[in-house]
Amino acid sequence: MKKNLFYLLLLILVFGCNSDNQTNESENFDQIAEKSKKVQVAKEEVVRLLKSFPSPLEITSLIKQSGAGYDEDILNNVNKVSSYNTSFNKALNLGIYGADLGYVNIYEKSFSAMKYLEVVKSLADDLKVGHFFDFNTLKRLASNNKNIDSLIYISTSSFEKMNNYLSDQNRGNVSTLILVGGWLEGLYISTQMVKKTNNKDLIERIGEQKVALNDIYILLAIYKNEPNFAKLVSHFEDLKETYKNINITYEYAEPTTKEVDGMLIIEDNTRSSVNINDQQLQTIINKISEIRAEIVNTK
């Protein structure tokens, strides 16, 4: 009996421990620890950066606020979905369609939302992350304009769950492409709207993307040695160059805090402003169109 218990304990201890036992014994323990620390740091850095991007919903809501009308022609056509044949293109275009879905949701176009949900589902399934989207619920919500807030919440949180899962599975490269696609599409829609409206607030938001662009570039550069990434990184290097002379200035003032109906409200008294001239804006519009066209028209 004692002997059996001893073996049982031994088995639990051996198999209950982590898989480090499987690593090559010739590797020095310090090296292994250092390696895993580096992998961990890189993973944490990727997650930190992925979570810092502004949501495309914010910029599309500003477009609506500017008075610009709904224009589905500027979005990526849903019929193109079947032409995306590699995981790289599927991930980038999943991000693009995700941002398009956000745009149609903000404008409360439920019929279009259904179409964009279909292509999101198709690409997410291909990337083996479709299970994060409860498409029956999403479609039911999309069938009624009154459910638009729930639709935005469930679709946004599904994208977030999917991205968290991808990062946990060491598929941060896929997650990065989805987020880059989403960010790019938000910016593309803004630039197309600026061409029509010349809205000052929107132009300023386009200039402010310099802040996000720096983080996006850092993120992309992590994967620059992976297949297909090199060209995308090169495009973003060009885009960074385009943004180089755009200055964001700050006038600092202490924030003020007040309580209204039990809610703490903080007023930011610092003011930021963006200096961007017409030529710089035009160069950005052209570059964004070029990168985006390459992504959506690829096969």
Partner: peptide, 11 residues
């Protein structure tokens, strides 16, 4: 919870 009225873009 608290509300933040942002007037300066940044990280």
């Amino acid at each position: 919870k608290f509300q933040y009225n942002c007037n300066s873009t940044g990280v």
